[in-house]
């Protein structure tokens, strides 16, 4: 929700990033304020996940230009764990499995790390068990997912729910949800998006990365951006997503395509 006394949470200017020397992000500009929901759409390979992982601090990506301010601080001064503690959260497009690390142990460690960072009380295993079960109810997750290894043997949809469960536990200032809708059937999509909506408030912000407008029926964006070739080439309101649904992506940003020498 766009509102008057919102604060700037994220300010991305001219962000460039490369992987193995190949530039993928070629000057991304984006401003996100508290209370807002932004959707970033675009075809496969346009750089959406790269953008998300650069924000989270994945070491495979080298930032080659531009800047990112998170609540006024240079995001690139922070290690990935410091970003998480400052309130950046990425729900991964492909959450990895960590066999042998129990999900409940992992969730509690993450939760308690952030609690102590925020000067709040940590929870012991029993207290945490109650707390996490309540959050799981919100996402209609079976509690036996706590006893399994992190994402171990989870279906695609279960992994996505586990990501949003982490969001619910960590209460980030900025949540970037990378294709959280993929792998979810229609019921699961309704449950997960309902959970996300409950977590959204006037002090935090959400970036939804998706290439279908389906999810946007459930989480209403304030802005829709189209990414193409590593840049945001068009920004509009939620009606842009419907346009994209009917017309595809080919027409977007063509008129703005930069000359090869740029």
């Amino acid at each position: 929700m766009i509102h008057q006394d919102s604060k700037t949470i994220l300010e991305v200017s001219g962000l460039r990033a490369a992987v193995d020397g190949v530039e993928i992000l070629k000057g991304v500009d984006l401003i996100v304020k508290s209370g807002e929901v932004h959707a970033i759409m675009g075809t496969n390979g346009s750089g959406k996940s790269t953008f998300a992982k650069v924000l989270a601090g994945h070491s495979a990506y080298q930032v080659t230009g531009g800047s990112v301010l998170f609540e006024g601080r240079n995001l690139f001064d922070l290690e990935p764990e410091e970003r998480a503690r400052a309130g950046v959260f990425l729900a991964f497009q492909y959450p990895i499995e960590i066999p042998g690390v129990s999900n409940s142990h992992f969730l509690r460690l993450a939760y308690n790390t952030l609690q102590s960072q925020r000067g709040k009380d940590e929870l012991d295993p029993l207290e945490f068990e109650d707390f996490v079960r309540e959050k799981m109810r919100l996402l209609e997750m079976n509690p036996n997912f706590l006893d399994r290894g992190v994402n171990e043997g989870f279906s695609g949809g279960e992994k996505k729910r586990n990501e949003i469960l982490q969001m619910a536990l960590l209460e980030p200032r900025l949540a970037i949800l990378d294709e959280t809708d993929s792998g979810l059937d229609i019921d699961a999509l309704r449950i997960v998006t309902n959970g996300v909506n409950k977590l959204a408030n006037k002090d935090n912000a959400i970036i939804l990365v998706t290439h279908y407008q389906r999810m946007l029926n459930y989480i209403e964006p304030d802005y829709v951006h189209v990414m193409r070739g590593g840049r945001i080439v068009k920004t509009g309101g939620k009606e842009l997503a419907l346009d994209l649904e009917t017309r595809g992506y080919d027409w977007v940003g063509v008129e703005r395509r930069a000359p090869a020498s740029a």
Partner: peptide, 12 residues
């Protein structure tokens, strides 16, 4: 795996 855990706030 290390990155995943760090992205949730765990120290290296």
């Amino acid at each position: 795996e290390l990155f995943y855990l760090k992205s949730r706030g765990l120290s290296g």
